[in-house]
Amino acid sequence: MWNNVRQLNIITSALHAALLAIVLSWGGLWLVKRPSFALRALLISGDINHINQTIVRESVLGNLRGNFITLDLDQVRIAFEQIPWIHHVSVRRVWPNKLRVTLKEYKPLGVWNKNQLVSVNGEVFNANQAGSELPVFTGPLESVHTIVTRYYDFRKWFYPLGAKLKEVTLSPCYAWTIKLTNGMQIELGQEHTKDTLASRAQRFVVAWPIVTQRWGSDIQYVDLRYPNGFAIRATGIGFIPSNPKSNKPIL
């Protein structure tokens, strides 16, 4: 081998490459440990309505390991995603010693089954509900998107009544019940066709001026499950079917 010039050249080149790699490795290690690459600032922007410095300090800063170069951005993102209200996180480095974190929060639409929240896009998430005046949605978990869709429909259909939606309930047998902020509870029943609920709501809203003129606006309970009418219960007045021929409600 020692008489083979070609092999000696290959060995020499390999040793030079190995030596260079070691030097670069040590040089890189020395460089990334320089104080100038220590993180100096965490810049947070985007939706920050429900987070503050205390939350970031307790949930994120204590979990960061490394400097500007060695820090794992995925770990930063995951740490922020553990904070309630946070839906999406974007993290990038800002040379030479800063991190830019852009946050997107969930936009709450209602309270889901009393102990969670549901977003405007039908996503269930956990967050503090203190002081919440959001409507309450109740139903099977797999029905959350259906309930959110119907909430928007109910809000539009019953708008002429002059009250907002307070509760939307879908029972285990998929019958709908809503409650308004004026205390009125409305039974809509099951959705047999795509027009069932809309036609029942329209029937009542059209008759609403006549109902209030005759019995006042303090209506406690409305049953829209009748085939050709509805029944109401007002203060001091029992059940009154709007159509005497339709005295039996249907689901």
Rank of each mutant, 00 (worst) to 15 (best):
L71M: 14
L71Y: 12
L73N: 05
L73K: 12
R77N: 00
I78A: 08
E81L: 14
Q82V: 15
I86R: 04
H87L: 04
H87G: 15
V89R: 02
S90R: 12
V91F: 01
V91H: 02
R92T: 13
R93L: 09
R93S: 07
R93T: 07
V94R: 13
V94G: 05
W95C: 09
W95K: 08
L99F: 15
R100M: 13
R100H: 15
L103G: 07
K104C: 12
E105W: 11
E105T: 11
E105C: 06
Y106L: 10
Y106D: 10
K107D: 08
K107R: 12
K107Y: 11
K107P: 13
K107N: 14
P108R: 07
L109Y: 12
G110M: 03
G110L: 00
V111R: 03
K114C: 02
K114Q: 14
Q116A: 12
V118L: 01
V118Q: 01
S119F: 10
S119H: 11
S119D: 05
V120Y: 11
V120C: 07
N121D: 03
N121W: 00
N121M: 03
E123Q: 12
V124G: 04
V124D: 05
F125T: 03
F125L: 04
N128L: 07
N128H: 11
A130H: 10
A130K: 14
G131S: 07
G131A: 08
G131K: 04
S132A: 09
L134Y: 05
L134E: 00
P135T: 10
V136M: 04
V136Q: 06
F137G: 01
T138S: 05
T138A: 00
